[in-house]
Design a binder for these strands. Structure first.
Length: 497
RNA sequence: GCGCCAUUGGAGUAGCGGUUAUCUCGUCAGCCUUUCAAGCUGAAGAACACGGGUUCGAAUCCCGUAUGGCGUACCA
């Protein structure tokens, strides 16, 4: 492939489910590679599995990609028109444009395929017999050398047939994989696979290859579950190229799979695996993008945090790891916390807005009206959470009228020694009432003296106050919380115990 | 059965013939501290799956074995 040719890569999900982490990572690598090379990132929907593909899944996939911050140059869009002129971008639609028929004719012209009249039942019994004998279970090439007369006779008899690839003998197919290096596949181990079914529809390996050829894909970056398919597709590409002289054989890069913590292929059994689930869990898109990108790719020995911009700038296929990676939720959460902490107060207010509104704690109008108050709250929260979902439990006490006190907190901090608690809270009320200007500094200066004055441990004093005002043993810093709550509500809560 | 791929501390990785084997997460301990985090300091943990080569020298190259994965469908 000439160096000057513009890079065109594609992500071709099957809408039989929502976008999961493995697919997301494949999409990220394709996207990053295209952006790095100044090429095009194409989204194609491989929806030929009619029974399991749904429009809802398509929508969800588009949404998930968008949420992750991936943009594509060609393909369907969420609300707008279809991008690009190499469409259609749904495989089911491509079946009706005649592209597959044209390709099949090319294959026929170059004698790269032949008609096979074996019935599925015949093939089954053959396979079974071969398995029992311990030999190869591949197609026995029964119809490979039928004479034109025999073929014609079968056709005249109305026998259904499939088109099979004529896999060349006595050679091997060489794949120069951009991730795994040069791999040789002896053709003896390759079946004369079916290209077109008896119902006239192309099989996956054929359709996918034609689509990639027709769309001018230059690099196929995909999961290594397709590695064994590659020599077959390479043979098809070669036959197409031999017939038309224009088909470009793309380069390949095979990505190892992502496994769950038990070393098994990531699936629903491992809990959340869908991108939308991670969004709901409170992950930030850039953080998930970052974490996924680093699951099998590295910039160098130390980089843990890499922004989308940096990823686009530095991504390269030769730094993709060959080993399968296990998904580690704890590390992903850590990366997320890094992004949360890196946000400015202003950014964090924007980030927590939907969570607060969804929990019915506040409204967009309130955030607008009391921006300073929210800006004061932001750093208190952002530095102690890993996931955005934690915003709600940590701050709800600031918004509710009726404070609900956590049972454990009540028992531990309030009911163990009610006398002392009463003393503490009474003293706290008095102290607060004596503060002229209710600033964090003044609250701090005044209440700090309380333990000494009461001759009690700071821990006892402040935990009682904390539970009284926040309802929990865990809260943002106490004096800041009081300030955010305001003097009146603080007093009201201290008196309510 | 056959073909292909992979194998560096608990997890992710760096490493491309000569390093005290890198960094991050996690774990443990200490400091800080009114809670929870964060932060800081430190520690444990890998002779690089195993066995043979090649080489003055191998985690790095070659061969084999083991383990795991993928494929071997008129699924994708």
């Amino acid at each position: 492939m000439p160096e000057t040719q513009a890079v065109r890569v594609r992500f071709a999900p099957s809408p039989t489910g929502t976008l999961h982490l493995g697919g997301a990572r494949t999409a990220i690598y394709n996207w990053a590679f295209a952006r790095n090379k100044g090429g095009s990132f194409i989204l194609r929907i491989d929806d030929t599995d009619l029974t399991r593909s749904t429009p809802e899944n398509v929508q969800q996939i588009l949404q998930a990609l968008t949420w992750l911050g991936l943009d594509w140059d060609e393909g369907p869009t969420l609300d707008g028109p279809v991008l690009g002129d190499a469409g259609p971008y749904f495989q089911t639609e491509r079946a009706t444009t005649g592209g597959y028929d044209v390709a099949l004719q090319k294959m026929i012209d170059s004698n790269a395929c032949y008609q096979c009249f074996c019935t599925p039942q015949q093939l089954d019994t053959q396979r079974e017999a071969a398995r029992a004998a311990g030999g190869s279970t591949g197609y026995a090439r029964t119809c490979r050398n039928l004479s034109p007369e025999e073929v014609q006779a079968n056709l005249d008899a109305g026998m259904p047939f499939v088109w099979r690839l004529r896999v060349p003998d006595g050679r091997s197919v060489t794949l120069h994989d951009l991730v795994r290096g040069t791999i040789e596949f002896p053709t003896t181990a390759l079946d004369d696979l079916v290209l077109v079914r008896s119902n006239g529809l192309p099989t996956y390996n054929f359709a996918s290859t034609i689509d990639d050829a027709d769309m001018g894909i230059t690099h196929i970056i995909r999961g290594d579950d397709h590695l064994s398919n590659t020599p077959k597709q390479l043979l098809i590409f070669e036959a197409l190229a031999a017939a038309d002289g224009t088909t470009v054989v793309p380069e390949f890069a095979h990505l190892s799979m992502i496994y769950g913590d038990d070393g098994k292929k990531l699936s629903k059994r491992h809990g959340a695996v869908g991108v939308e689930e991670f969004a709901a869990m409170g992950f930030l898109p850039d953080a998930l993008l970052n974490g996924l990108a680093l699951l099998g790719w590295s910039l160098d020995a130390e980089t843990t945090m890499i922004t989308p911009e940096e990823l686009k700038e530095h991504f390269s296929l030769d730094r993709i790891s060959k080993n399968p990676a296990r998904f580690d939720l704890a590390k992903m959460e850590h990366i997320n916390s890094l992004y949360i902490q890196a946000m400015t107060a202003d950014q964090f207010v924007s980030a927590m807005t939907p969570w607060l509104i969804d929990a019915d704690l506040t409204t967009a109008a309130d955030i607008e009206a009391r921006k300073d108050w929210y800006l004061e709250l932001a750093p208190l929260v952002s530095e102690r959470i890993k996931l955005m979902t934690e915003v709600v439990p940590l701050t709800s006490f600031l918004f509710v009228d009726e404070l609900e006190i956590d049972e454990k907190a009540r028992v531990k901090a309030l009911e163990k020694d009610p006398e002392t608690v009463k003393t503490v809270l009474t003293a706290a009320v008095a102290a607060i009432e004596g503060i002229e200007d209710f600033t964090v500094e003044n609250i701090d200066a005044t209440l700090k003296q309380l333990p000494a004055e009461l001759d009690l441990k700071p821990r006892v004093v402040f935990q009682a106050i904390r539970v009284a005002i926040s309802g929990s043993l865990i809260s943002p810093p106490l004096f800041e919380s009081m300030h955010l709550l305001g003097r009146d509500r603080t007093l009201q809560r201290l008196n309510a115990i």
